[in-house]
């Protein structure tokens, strides 16, 4: 059996890739995908803990997270499409109509 620490390390790596992508990437869709990666990193950690601890709560949580992620994708893509219709751009740098 794969030890818990291996799975958790993978989950941390996924999470860090997602967070780094969120900060560094400029395309809104890519940024959104990075967020999904972070959610899935958390899912992986839940599953690993659930298996290791022998309780089902973690696996249950993952199902809810998947549902939430799907809802978030629906809402998020709708918002991004509304933005694209008005501006014809998906670059975060162009979102500067409000001053800092």
């Amino acid at each position: 059996m794969i030890p818990l620490s291996h799975v958790l390390t993978l989950s941390v790596i996924l999470f860090v890739i997602g967070a780094a992508g969120f900060v560094l990437r400029r395309n809104i869709i890519t940024v959104f995908m990075c967020i999904e990666l972070m959610l899935n990193a958390a899912n992986l950690a839940f599953i690993a803990f659930s298996r290791y601890l022998g309780t089902l709560d973690g696996q249950l949580f993952v199902f809810f997270v998947i549902v939430v992620a799907a809802a978030e994708a629906a809402v998020g893509l709708a918002i991004i499409i509304a933005l694209y219709r008005n501006r014809e751009t998906l670059n975060i740098e162009d979102l500067d109509s409000m001053k800092l």
Partner: peptide
């Protein structure tokens, strides 16, 4: 995402 990761560790 951050919140959820914290929750997963707390669950662990």
């Amino acid at each position: 995402g951050l919140l959820l990761y914290g929750m997963s560790l707390l669950y662990g």
